[in-house]
Write a protein that binds this DNA or RNA. Structure first.
Lengths: 147, 147
DNA sequence: ATAATTAACTTGATTAGTCAAGTGATGTCC
DNA sequence: GGACATCACTTGACTAATCAAGTTAATTAT
């Protein structure tokens, strides 16, 4: 029995790479006392604030329940606040949240970039971005349209 | 403040795609009563059995502790056995484990492949594989050589 | 106004993982 | 042969997520 196809090999590479780079990133972000998942969420809030929990969940591809817990943790740590803006509850960063992002963002961007710029040239990097964008967008269409 | 680079955009695409495809895969594998992580581990055991827990951990990029828990779950479900082959404890699939793989493997391979073949041509698929292989291998060098 | 519906969010049980400290058998040194 | 070291594995405390059931509050319908 065949136990792979080109597609399955790509899938495995993607999964293993994402896994590994996530671990390395967690390690890297330890200096800021923050995890990769937390950085990701804070970053989305930074860009789109103020926003609701639902919107945030969608941005980071996590369920309602998942975002509820994550937001609680971040609130407990004092990075974000939830406030009731007449009828809609919205999330935004606190001073502390903005401050940690100010510090961590340039470092984290450089860190993420280093996974590619050391091995691919400009042309190849663009190609990878183009291909992954198409693959990602296609996978979003596979989601059962939640009616 | 700039909040992205080409590298960080690729990284985000990879993370989001991996996340989403993992969720879709979990959904897909529900018909076999198994998760994506479990399929991955069973697959590695199938290919490399008999092997030790350490070896398995390395194959799936998980820590000792993580693999210990995963292996316990799979043993409880009756998919694998741990036996003491004079001095070394090794893991292999049971009948039940082999059976579930027989059933699930072709389906799962087709499923994984569908993420790419619907949207990339032969040439592009090969390019994506080549680029991701290089990126992945490079990231493995970043791991602190555990001395 | 009261009841029913819906939307946004929370929570309990579970899977999956991390790290770091602990256990247990084997091997080695004196 | 007893102390020590080492290797493979386990376990407790935690982060992070899922699903599904439950809660809460606003909107609509009678």
């Amino acid at each position: 029995m065949r136990n792979n196809t080109l597609g399955s090999l790509i899938w495995l590479r993607l999964v293993r790479f994402t896994n590994l780079s996530n671990q390395l990133s967690n390690d890297f972000l330890k200096q800021f006392n923050i995890t990769t998942a937390q950085f990701d969420v804070l970053m989305q809030i930074h860009v789109y604030q103020p926003l609701t929990q639902m919107e945030l969940a969608e941005k980071v591809t996590v369920t309602q329940g998942g975002i509820s817990r994550m937001v609680s943790r971040l609130e407990k740590e004092g990075y974000i606040v939830r406030k009731q803006d007449w009828k809609t509850k919205t999330i935004s960063l606190t001073e502390k949240g903005e401050a940690i992002l100010d510090e961590a963002m340039p470092a984290q961007l450089a860190f993420q970039t280093s996974f590619f710029e050391d091995v691919l040239n400009e042309e190849e990097t663009k190609t990878l971005y183009r291909l992954m964008t198409r693959v990602h967008k296609h996978s979003q269409k596979k989601e059962l349209p939640s009616e």
